[in-house]
Design a protein around this nucleic acid. Structure first.
Lengths: 185, 185
DNA sequence: CCTTTTCTGTACCATTCGGTACAGAAAGCT
DNA sequence: AGCTTTCTGTACCGAATGGTACAGAAAAGG
C-alpha cells in the first residue's frame, strides 16, 4: 500500500479545488476519492467528520493563507500603500487572474453558509477590517475608510462572478486595477 | 386530485427560491416536490427534461424579468438618469434589499455555469450593455461608460455576497447607494 | 527485531438520488 | 352527454449518495 500523502495538509488544496469546481453540495465523495487518489477509509481517517470536516479544513486553510499573505501585510507594513498594493497583487495571484473563484464567497451564497457561518463571516470581516485600517493610516477618514474597504472587498467578489459569467479572466484583472484606484487618496 | 397550478409559469418562482437556497446541485427532487406540493409525475409533466429544464426555465424567467423591468427602461427612458435610478430601485426590490441572492450569479460560480453558459453569459452581457448605453447617453465617454457599467453590475453581485456573508442586508442597500454615485456624471 | 501507530483496500450498509411507467382522475370541449 | 387533453398518485427502477467495520499493510519508534 503506497502512501499518497505525508500529512493531511497536502490533501486540503486538492479538496479546495474540487469544492471550487462543484460547490460544497455538488462535490461527491466519489469525485473526491478519484481526484485525491485516496480511498474512503483514508479519507475518513484524515477527516473523521466526513464532508463537513473537509469543508471546515478547506476554509481554515484559505483563511490562514489570507491572514498571512494579505491581512497581516495590510496591518503591519510601514507604508500602508505598500500593504494595499501587496493585497491586490496577492489577490490576482491567488485567484489565478480571475480563473479561480473564491471558495468562501461561493459557500456564502447558498445554504452552505449556515454550516460554516462563523468562518465565512470572520474571513470577510477580517479582510475588510485590515483594509479599513490601512486606508485610515493612509489618510482616509474613518467613515470613508470603512466604505472603501467594503466596496473593494465586495468589488473583488463581484469581479470574480462577472469574469466567470463572461468566461473572460481579463475582466477580473482590469476591474481590480480600477478598484485599486479607489484606495488612492 | 386537486390541481395545484393552473400553468407551469406559476411553479417557476417556487423553483427559483429553492435553487437560490440550495444551489442547483443541492436542490433535490424531494425538496422540490415538498415545496411545490407537486408529485414527481406532475413535475415531469411540466418539465419533461427534469432538473435541467427546471433550471433553464428559472433562468429564462429571471432574464425576462430583468429585460422588462431593468434593461428596457435603461435603454428606452428619455432621461438616462431616470432609467439608471429605476435600475437601482428595481434591483433593491428584486434582491429583497440584499436578503435574496442572484440566481444567475450563483449559477455562474460553480460547474453549473457550463450547463447554462449561454443564458448566464447573455444575462450579464445584456445588463452591462444596457447600462453602458444609458451612461453614454448621459455624458460618459465610450470607454468610461463600459468600465462604470461593469463595475456597477459586478459591484451589485459582490455586495450580495458580502452582505450575505455578514448576514446584514443593510450592507447591500448602502453599497448600492454608493454604486449609484459612480453613475452620476 | 518487535511493537505501536498510522494508514489503506475491500466489502458492506441504509438511504437518497434523478428518473420512468402507467392507470386513472380532473378539466376542457363540443 | 361523451370524448380528448391535461394532470397526478402509486409503485417502481438502477445508480449513486455519504458513511462504517475491520483486517491487514506500511511506516515509525524503541
Amino acid at each position: 500500500m503506497a502512501r499518497r500523502f505525508a500529512e493531511r495538509g497536502e490533501i486540503v488544496p486538492v479538496l479546495a479545488e474540487i469544492f471550487r469546481e462543484h460547490g460544497f453540495a455538488g462535490a461527491s465523495l466519489s469525485e473526491i476519492t478519484r481526484r485525491t487518489g485516496l480511498g474512503k477509509s483514508s479519507l475518513y481517517h484524515f477527516f473523521p467528520g466526513g464532508k463537513d470536516e473537509m469543508g471546515q479544513a478547506v476554509l481554515d486553510d484559505v483563511a490562514r493563507w489570507f491572514e498571512r499573505n494579505v491581512f497581516q501585510p495590510l496591518r503591519d507594513s510601514e507604508e500602508p500603500a505598500a500593504g494595499i498594493d501587496h493585497m491586490f497583487k496577492a489577490s490576482v495571484r491567488f485567484f489565478n487572474s480571475g480563473r479561480r473563484i473564491c471558495l468562501v464567497g461561493s459557500f456564502a451564497l447558498d445554504d452552505t453558509r449556515d454550516r460554516f457561518a462563523h468562518v465565512i463571516h470572520g474571513y470577510f470581516a477580517a479582510w475588510v477590517g485590515a483594509l479599513e485600517a490601512a486606508l485610515r493610516r493612509s489618510g482616509f477618514d474613518g467613515r470613508r475608510a470603512k466604505e472603501v474597504a467594503q466596496d473593494v472587498v465586495a468589488g473583488i467578489q463581484g469581479a470574480l462572478v462577472f469574469a466567470r459569467s463572461q468566461d473572460d479572466p481579463r475582466l477580473f484583472t482590469r476591474a481590480l486595477k480600477r478598484l485599486q484606484r479607489l484606495t488612492e487618496p
